[in-house]
Write a protein that binds this DNA or RNA. Structure first.
Lengths: 113, 113
DNA sequence: GTCAAACTTTGATGCTCATCGACCTTTGAG
DNA sequence: CTCAAAGGTCGATGAGCATCAAAGTTTGAC
């Protein structure tokens, strides 16, 4: 079988996405910022293009959490790992949840710790 | 001054409710269960009437987190502390968020750890 | 083949939080 | 006043998680 790309980790199927995992993913401000940047851009973004306040190894961790929760989809283009927001999958499984988080994310300024 | 009841702790005003706090509150399955039971009942419930899998002192902690996040409102009736779901406040501040969590809570079975 | 770019992996660390048992407080009934 | 009911408070404990630096891996260009 022609495996697409051995570097691409597992994504949950739409029906495997759980509310618990999505909430755990979106409760972190860094991860919510990733989702918001992806939403605002309207196009796929590589991991390195995000504006994030953490080290790259930490960012990798956050992308993994989002992917395993089913919030983003990842695929490789060369050495760049691209990221897509799985808005349709989330909206059909938990209607209103993603929009509520994203809308609040853009209208409400981040709470500075 | 006729203070309403010295035992009643602080509640955030509607505009003080933050997405971060609400998500932190609803990410815990026990707290989400409290919100869901309150929603299903359609009426206020005292702390002792909830069906919760934790000790009483732990439940007290969870009620406090929900109250400080603005998810529930609490008031005393005798020795009983009653709880109200602040659905209107949440819906006007983060439209769709509460419904998304509650709907998924009732249709999706709890993930047993 | 060589090299840099772009991520990932691997510990290690530190902090937050859910949990509990034991004890204290307030209220209302008798 | 006395008591039981309903909760709250107080440490203590343990697990999970976000964070980082350092080293490893994979790819594409030259």
């Amino acid at each position: 079988m022609s495996r697409p790309d051995a570097r691409i980790p597992e994504h949950p199927e739409p029906h495997e996405i759980t509310l618990q995992a999505v909430l755990e993913a979106l409760v972190d401000p860094v991860r919510r910022s990733i989702a918001a940047q992806l939403h605002r851009a309207g196009e796929d973004i590589s991991c390195g293009k995000f504006d994030l306040p953490v080290a790259r190894s930490t960012a990798t961790h956050h992308f993994g959490v989002l992917r395993e929760a089913g919030v983003i989809r990842q695929y490789y283009v060369g050495t760049s790992r691209m990221n897509t927001l799985r808005a349709d999958d989330l909206n059909s499984r938990f209607p209103g949840l993603l929009d509520a988080c994203l809308q609040a994310e853009t209208t409400t300024p981040d709470p500075e710790p």
